[in-house]
């Protein structure tokens, strides 16, 4: 039986819609979701590949005994850190925070070195801006925001871009390009930035860059690498890379909720005595984990994400599953 269902793309914080194709109860492919206001049916390669997580998900195991083992280990542990990320839904993040707070665990939340902004530019603001300042290869890394930058250019805007490498599509559409450092870029273009400008960025070099951005009087739009980082920022305090390293240095037991932290941070995780992972499919972090508890993939869960421009988007499970959600895992951990 063929079925097409709406869902949200989990591969970055843009919040694109995507349809998944179900055939005989299995997810077999994606289909454009042309009605979705964010992306009008356009999805990048990451988005279309995001169903691979479902295809490669862990097989069913005796979850209860695994969670029992984790609980036992936690009982006698000190210096426990919980890693939470934008891969989790709002509801899950709230549950994780409550869990960590009640147990007195520290929370490690990393959002690409970026921070929360109360007010951010909307995607339409980019299209209507007179000048767009871009930090990072947005066209390649977040193509559906990149598309808005292209629209801005077509509407007559001037594009200024900073990208690490010179050969990039973002450079190709930019009027002025910089590639030395974010700080120098901001210094160089700072005088040009006014209220009709929008600054879009998905990376910075150092914390000082954030201060420089704060000093600008234009709309800003940080774009994160995870679907719900913006939502998580509303609940948790983000840590910079250095702060994360410091936290990990003082960690004895690490609980990772659906985050490939080992891939993201260059840290010697062998210094941590125990790592427990709650993840839907294998990644670098599950490789180094002592116990891996399989949880629902994004296609199997309901919830809400907040996209980069601060809009809350709800989505329903595309497919039923017996796997536990993060919330159910936490209930079990609480006993």
């Amino acid at each position: 039986m063929l079925e097409i269902k709406h869902t949200l793309c989990p591969s970055c914080s843009v919040g694109c819609g995507i349809n998944v194709v179900l055939n005989d109860g299995e997810i077999v492919g994606t289909f454009p979701y042309k009605r979705h206001p964010v992306n009008a049916g356009k999805n990048c390669l990451n988005g279309r590949n995001s169903i691979d997580c479902y295809k490669n998900k862990f097989e069913d195991v005796d979850v209860d005994s695994l969670i029992g083992d984790v609980s036992k280990a936690l009982n006698s542990a000190s210096d426990v850190t919980v890693i939470c990320s934008g891969n989790n839904t709002i509801e899950e993040i709230e549950a994780i925070k409550e869990f960590a707070d009640s147990k007195g665990y520290k929370i490690g939340f990393y959002a690409d070195n970026l921070k929360n902004y109360e007010e951010v530019a909307s995607y339409e603001d980019i299209e209507n801006a007179e000048k767009v300042f871009v930090i990072g290869d947005l066209l390649y890394e977040n193509p559906l925001i990149g598309r808005r930058i292209v629209h801005a250019k077509q509407n007559g805007a001037k594009i200024f871009a900073f990208v690490n490498s010179e050969a990039s599509v973002t450079f190709n559409i930019a009027d002025e390009c910089f590639n030395d450092s974010v700080g120098e870029f901001l210094d160089a273009v700072g005088n040009n930035i006014d209220e009709s400008s929008v600054l879009v960025f998905n990376q910075i070099d150092a914390a000082e860059d954030l201060d420089k951005i704060d000093a600008l009087n234009c709309k800003v739009l940080p774009v994160f690498s995870k679907s719900n980082s913006k939502g998580a920022l509303g609940i948790l305090e983000p840590k910079s890379k250095e702060e994360m390293f410091e936290l990990l240095d003082n960690t004895d037991v690490l609980l990772v909720f659906n985050d490939d932290i080992a891939d993201e941070l260059e840290f010697d995780f062998s210094k941590i005595s125990k790592i427990f992972s709650f993840a839907p499919c294998a990644d670098e972090t599950t490789e180094i984990s002592e116990i891996v508890v399989p949880i629902k993939t994004w296609l199997e869960k309901d919830g809400s994400f907040v996209n980069a421009m601060g809009e809350t988007q709800n989505f329903n499970a595309a497919i039923e599953s017996d796997a536990l959600s993060v919330i159910e895992v936490i209930e079990k951990l609480n006993g």
Partner: peptide, 13 residues
């Protein structure tokens, strides 16, 4: 063409 990101969406669809 200078902003093609090689995502193969056109081919796949």
């Amino acid at each position: 063409w200078n902003r093609c990101i090689s995502c193969y969406a056109c081919r796949d669809v």
